[in-house]
Amino acid sequence: MSEYLDTPQGRRLAYHRSTGRGPWVVFCGGLKSDMEGSKALHLEAWAQREGRAFLRFDYSGHGESSGAFTDGCIGDWHEDTLAAVDALTEGPVLPVGSSMGGWQALLLARARPGRIAGMVTIAAAPDFTEDGYWAGFSDAQKVQLESVGHVELPSDYMEPYVITRRLIEDGRTRLVLRSPLRLPFPVRFLQGTDDTAVPVATAVRLLDHAEGPDMRLTLVKDADHRFSDETCLDVIETALEDVLERAGA
C-alpha cells in the first residue's frame, strides 16, 4: 500500500519508503512514468536485500499522486522531488534518475548540494523541453502551442504526449546545460545506444558539460530507452554499488 505526502504546494504524492542504512537511494522516474516500473521495483528489492534506505514516489500528475499530467511542468515536479526528499529522508541522499528523472536528479543536486552523496542517471534527459521538444517543433507546431496552448507528440513507448506551453516555458527556467553544472561526488551516467527518445549525443553532452572529479558514462549496446531488461538492470545495480563504494557508504 502506498503512503501519501501532502506537499507545501498543496499536492498529494504517493510513495513507498524502506528504512535502512544510508545514504538514502531515491528513485526519480521519467516523464509519464510511475513508481511501479521495473527499474524502481528492482532497486527497491535490491535495497531491501542490502538493508539500504530507499524511496520511490510519484510526481504530481503521475501514478497514484494527485493532479493531472497536463497541468504539470518541470518546476512542479522539482518541487515534488524536494518535498519528498526533505520530508521522507534524512542525511545524505543518492538520487537515481531515469530520463526526465535524470534532469530532476541534477536539479536536486543544484538545490540541495550539501546532501548529495552520489548520483546515477539512466538515459538522462536534461533540458529536453528546449533541446528536444521546442527545437524539434515545426513552425506550425510552435504557432499551435502559442494559440491553442498544447501540441500532441507521438511516443514510441506509450500514448501520445500532450506538450503544453507551460511545460516549455517553465522548462526554460530550469535548464542545466547552459550554466556551470558542478557534481562534486561520484556520478555514473548510463545510456543505451538504441535509445530513440534520448540520443547518445545527449549523454555525451552531459558528460562533457558537467564538472566533477569522478564521472563516467557507460554505453550499453542495443539497449533502448526503457533500459530495463535483465542486463540493463544489472548495469544499474553495479553502477549504484560502485557509487556507494566510492562515496564511502
Rank of each mutant, 00 (worst) to 15 (best):
C73M: 03
C73L: 06
I74F: 05
I74K: 04
I74P: 03
G75C: 03
G75V: 02
G75L: 05
D76H: 15
D76W: 11
W77G: 09
W77A: 12
W77V: 11
W77P: 11
H78K: 14
H78S: 15
H78W: 12
H78R: 15
H78I: 04
H78G: 08
E79R: 07
E79H: 07
E79L: 01
E79S: 08
D80Y: 00
T81G: 09
L82I: 13
L82A: 10
L82H: 06
L82F: 02
A84S: 10
A84Y: 02
A84W: 01
V85I: 14
V85F: 05
D86S: 10
D86Y: 04
D86I: 00
D86G: 05
A87D: 08
A87W: 01
A87S: 13
A87Q: 08
L88E: 11
L88R: 08
L88F: 07
T89H: 05
T89K: 04
T89L: 05
T89G: 05
E90H: 08
E90A: 15
E90T: 15
G91P: 05
G91R: 03
G91L: 07
P92N: 11
P92A: 15
V93F: 04
L94R: 09
L94Y: 10
L94K: 09
L94Q: 12
P95S: 14
V96C: 13
G97Q: 02
G97W: 00
G97F: 00
S98C: 00
S98Q: 02
S98I: 01
S98Y: 00
S98L: 00
S98P: 01
S99D: 12
S99A: 08
M100Y: 00
M100L: 07
G101D: 03
G101L: 00
G102P: 06
G102W: 03
G102H: 07
W103G: 07
W103F: 06
W103D: 10
W103Y: 08
W103C: 09
Q104C: 04
Q104E: 09
A105G: 13
A105T: 07
A105I: 01
L106Q: 07
L106N: 06
L106K: 02
L106A: 08
L106I: 04
L108H: 02
L108I: 01
L108R: 03
L108Q: 08
A109N: 08
A109D: 12
R110Q: 15
R110W: 07
R110L: 13
R110K: 15
A111H: 14
A111E: 13
A111D: 15
R112A: 09
R112M: 04
P113W: 12
P113E: 13
G114L: 03
G114T: 10
R115Q: 15
R115F: 06
R115Y: 04
R115D: 15
R115A: 15
I116K: 12
I116A: 14
A117T: 14
